[in-house]
């Protein structure tokens, strides 16, 4: 028998600190595989967010930095402008990117920074205990929306990908999900494409939004959380290549 699937070298051989069934682990693996398949470990610099994935550098075996909450696109800008030959990617949650860091991602996209952004949308602030994120669904119960989010009270879920599509500086925006085997495979293709664009010197920012389960704060089993992505999240956050097909 031949091994057809094994851990890729850039994904360190260690347990994660993530809850059972959390999407961060899957997303990390897809990034690690991409880096290895493209053979770019030696020229890649990753940016870990503030959020559950703050320790991403403990799992991804590339040069990495941990930055202030939401500021990853600015840090990436500083890196890429001074190191145009390096492959710079940021990994950000929805609190990080869509809430406190909304300004930074908007302007990095607006300037068309040649960076790759992996945006993990799990509709909550995982790290701080499941509070409302800008991406929280209407009626979704969180620690800070105990009766469910209302449009009148907290506004509608923020569709950052759609916002970024409108900017001339973004070249590729795709929304994927980790909700099934097929979707995970598709997410991998999208992530790889986003890295390939940067590698090819394409002039602009690419972003892959990943609808990712947080079973813990959705209070669902890992399997039910996957179903919830398809039944609820994709209704508000439709999947697809929103800009720049592959």
């Amino acid at each position: 028998m031949k091994t057809v699937f094994e851990r890729t070298p850039t994904l360190k051989d260690c347990p994660t600190h993530y809850c059972p069934g959390c999407g961060h682990g899957i997303a990390h693996r897809l990034i690690a595989e991409t880096i290895d398949e493209l053979g770019i470990r030696g020229r890649t610099i990753g940016i870990a967010p503030v959020g559950c994935a703050v320790l991403a550098y403990d799992y991804l075996d590339v040069d990495m930095i941990e930055v202030a909450h939401g500021r990853a696109p600015a840090v990436a800008t500083g890196m890429k402008r001074t190191n145009p030959d390096k492959i710079i990617f940021s990994y950000q949650g929805d609190g990080d990117l869509a809430s406190i860091g909304a300004g930074e991602i908007l302007h990095a996209g607006h300037r068309g920074e040649q960076i790759t952004v992996i945006f993990i949308n799990n509709a909550v602030f995982g790290m701080t205990g499941g509070q409302m994120a800008p991406t929280t669904m209407l009626e979704q119960v969180t620690a800070t929306t105990p009766k469910g989010r209302t449009a009148a009270g907290e506004g509608y879920p923020l569709q950052v990908a759609e916002l970024l599509v409108t900017l001339p500086g973004t070249i590729y925006v795709e929304r994927c999900a980790l909700s099934s085997v097929a979707q995970v495979r598709n997410t991998k293709k999208a992530i790889k494409h986003a890295f390939e664009l940067q590698l090819s010197g394409a002039q602009g920012l690419s972003l892959v939004e990943v609808l990712s389960p947080c079973p813990t704060y959705w209070r669902l089993s890992p399997a039910k959380a996957m179903e919830w992505i398809e039944s609820h999240m994709t209704k508000v956050f439709p999947l697809g290549q929103l800009k720049g097909g592959r």
């Binding site: 610099i45 940016i47 930095i65 890196m79």
Partner: peptide, 26 residues
């Protein structure tokens, strides 16, 4: 060398953070 007008001071200092982390004088 690199000059960039940032969108805010928050962004500016974080651009400095990023460039500095790669070993650049900034």
């Amino acid at each position: 060398r690199v000059f960039l007008q940032s969108e805010s001071e928050l962004a500016a200092i974080n651009m400095v953070f990023g460039a500095s982390a790669t070993g650049q004088r900034t």
